[in-house]
């Protein structure tokens, strides 16, 4: 319950954070702190320096950017959950932000922090993957953008260099049906399985992504292919566990996850089609 000692630095801006990262080995960025501090309290993480980017206020925003919506990395879940722009133009993000943790966690935890943490049991990365989101990353040599599909590499492993910082997520505006079904035992639990569905213009080009079904958020390719081939949702959903490799943990065994993924996928498709 007491983290190991560390040094503390305040970043005044994203650029400053990048600079500070360059000055310290073994430094971690602190945003909302709701992934990092729990690990530090149990001493499962003991960085020597924390760089607090939580005070960089210009990284907390949701902006209408034409055909896309730009979400600042430091936007907390609760702000995203209640954001009118997201609710009207990309409601799956607003909905899923309200499914993370509990209200207190959502008041502090950030969308960007969740993406950068790369936990395959997190909801937001799955949503980003389903939306084909694009991430803006700042490093010592400037900015680059990267597709969600390329960003998530493995368990807690993302495409961020040691000196890079995630600054923005860009998601498309969606006008068609969507669903995010998070199956969990207790409300505050991590997803045993989560299924995100974002329909294109009709059910045959839906994108379907899964939480807690592998080492990173996964696209349910089999389901997407089956839908594209004109199969009905109920039969397409049967392929939800294809190519997945979920872990066994206290939230559920690997086998169980593979067994209920098709059920949840069918329900998510049905819900998306009904919206």
């Amino acid at each position: 319950m007491i983290p190991a000692p560390f040094d503390y630095e305040v970043a005044e801006s994203a650029e400053h954070a990048v600079e500070l990262l360059g000055q310290h080995d073994d430094a971690k960025l602190l945003a909302g702190g709701h992934s990092l501090l729990p690990l530090m309290k149990l001493r499962l993480a003991s960085p020597s320096v924390l760089i607090d980017i939580g005070r960089v206020s210009d990284l907390s925003y949701v902006r209408d950017a034409g055909d896309r919506i730009a979400i600042g990395a430091l936007t907390c879940y609760e702000d995203a959950h209640f954001d009118e722009t997201l609710k009207s133009s990309c409601p799956i993000v607003a909905h899923a932000a309200g499914e993370v943790g509990d209200p207190q966690v959502r008041n502090r935890g950030t969308i960007g922090g969740s993406v950068a943490h790369g936990d395959p049991a997190s909801d937001i990365p799955t949503i980003m993957l389903a939306l084909n989101a694009e991430f803006v990353v700042r490093g010592p040599t400037g900015e680059r953008t990267i597709a969600a599909a390329d960003f998530f590499k493995g368990v807690f492993e993302v495409d961020l260099a040691p000196q890079e910082i995630l600054t923005e997520m860009r998601v498309p505006k969606t006008s068609s049906g969507w669903s995010y079904l998070k199956f969990h035992h207790r409300a505050q639990d991590w997803a045993t399985v989560g299924v995100a569905v974002v329909l294109g213009d009709g059910s045959n080009n839906a994108s379907v992504a899964l939480t807690s079904m592998g080492e990173r958020p996964l696209r349910a390719q089999g389901v997407e292919e089956a839908l594209a081939a004109g199969e009905d949702p109920a039969s397409a959903a049967r392929r939800a566990a294809e190519g997945t490799n979920p872990v066994s943990d206290p939230m559920g065994s690997s086998e169980y996850r593979r067994q209920i993924a098709p059920v949840l996928t069918r329900r998510a498709l049905e819900e998306a089609l009904s919206r």
Partner: peptide, 25 residues
């Protein structure tokens, strides 16, 4: 583990778990 909420307080009017925030924050 930021689970129980006993330490909940308000920071700028929003509920937070004060066990998952550094004092300096």
């Amino acid at each position: 583990t930021t689970s129980c909420g006993a330490c909940t307080i308000l920071v700028d009017g929003k509920s937070v778990k004060s066990c998952t925030m550094l004092a300096v924050q």
